[in-house]
Structure formats: C-alpha cells, structure tokens
Write a protein that binds this DNA or RNA. Structure first.
Length: 225
DNA sequence: CCGTGATCATTT
DNA sequence: AAATGATCACGG
C-alpha cells in the first residue's frame, strides 16, 4: 500500500478519520505494512506514529501542526473501557530560557492547542497494541473558559520559570496544564534560569494536559455520564 | 541535545 | 487508583 498523501482539506481529513473509526490498530497497521509491536515498552509513541502515517500527517518531528496546510494538530488519546483518559497529554517542550517577550498569545502551547484533532483509542493495558480500537475522532478548539484556564496555568508556570524557580515546580502545579520531565532520562540536562538569575542546568520539561481536562473535552463531545 | 510521538513505573 | 516522575525511539 502506498503512503497516504496529506488530506487536501479538513473534510477529506475527517472522512479518513471516520473511515478508520471502529477498526483495530492491527487492522490498519496490516493495511499499510506497518510493524506492530507486542507491547509499547520500547515504542511508546507507536500509536501516534501509526495514526499520523495513516492519515497523511506531514510535520513529523517538526514543531509545526501535524497537518501544516490545515493548521490542525493531531493527538491520539488513550482511553479506558469507560471512556476516560488513561494518560496526560503531552503538548510541547517547555522553553526555559529567553523568556523575555514571551506571552500566552505567542506561546507554543496556545499555538499547539488552537485547533486539535482528538482521536480516542481504546487503550487499556490488557489489550495488546494490535487489539486496541480506534474511536471517533473529532475536531476541537478551546472554549473561552478552557483557554482562560490554560492561560492562567501557563502564565503562572512561565513566571516561576522566568523568576528562577523552575526547581520548585512539580507535577501538581496547574489546574489543567502541568510541567513534567520530558527527556531521554533523568541525567539529560538543559540550560535554565536559577535563583538570582544565575544560569543552571536542569532536566528538560514539557507541558502536559491533565486527564481531568481531556476528560471534560470528551464529555462535551460525547456527552457526560 | 532538541523536539516529535507518547507510555511506563513508582510514589502517593 | 490516580498522580507524578522517569523513560524509550527516532530524525535532525
């Protein structure tokens, strides 16, 4: 099977999304000769990469929306049998230096989350990757309230980073957006601002959406209860 | 090392 | 069980 081309329009993209709903990852992987691992221990991003391929995403490994010409970011969302998110959702790497002039409006987080294609995947751990089931994908843009929540957390976290307090931040900061390590391992280091503006080296961090936030997005789309 | 794709594993 | 911290693969 040839590599899928980028969808020409949003409606074509959503047609493809609807076409794969209900299929297992094993079924679509077989269609595209995509290797399927026994587990995700060593290929944690496999599901996202498979879906990107099948839908014709273009911006792999680039800090751009997955569908550049459509301005849409693709996020797979692992869900439980009861339809709740199983994991937080990675958004982007966290800038730790050169924060002068950075605002919510021009932030990478706002840019990334401005238009998202959520694709729930029934992904309980007792299901092998090949047996996991693709759900109903949908387009989403943050509501006024959601954006206000994101903005508040982002501004608080960014201020702490800019004031040299990165080492005080842990995963419990933020109502909907949190900061957590995002690195190869705990020995990876990157430059950051320390106390008194002194340069320090610290673990690279990423922005993540908490599960309660994505649970609400699913509830709005599919109905609570 | 950075940034993409995330989930695993341990702690609470 | 849920939340936080640690980790895996890959292209550049």
């Amino acid at each position: 099977m040839n590599k899928p081309l980028p969808p020409a329009s949003t409606s074509e993209l959503m047609t493809r999304v609807n076409d794969i709903a209900g299929l297992t990852l094993g079924e679509i992987a077989a269609s595209y000769a995509f290797n399927t691992p026994e587990n995700l221990l060593r290929e944690k991003g496999w599901i996202g990469q498979l879906i990107e391929y099948v839908l014709g995403a273009t911006a792999a490994s680039k800090p751009e929306p997955d569908f550049e010409h459509l301005g849409i970011e693709l996020k797979t969302l692992p869900i439980s049998y009861s339809g709740k998110p199983l994991e937080t959702t990675y958004v982007s790497i966290t800038p730790l230096t050169n924060l002068h002039g950075v605002t919510w409006q021009n932030s990478v987080v706002k840019k990334k989350l401005s238009h998202v294609l959520w694709l729930p995947i029934l992904s309980e751990r007792d299901l092998a990757p090949t047996d996991r089931i693709i759900g109903n994908g949908f387009l989403w843009q943050p509501s006024t309230l959601q954006e206000a929540q994101l903005k508040k957390d982002w501004e608080e976290l960014t201020e702490m980073i800019a004031l040299g307090n990165i080492e005080q931040i842990n995963g419990h900061f933020g109502q909907v957006l949190q900061l957590r390590p995002k690195a190869a391992n705990s020995k990876a280091l990157t430059q950051a601002i320390g106390p008194n503006g002194k340069e320090i080296m610290t673990l690279p961090r990423g922005y993540y959406l908490k599960t309660e936030f994505t649970r609400q997005i699913l509830a709005e789309q599919f109905g609570a209860g």
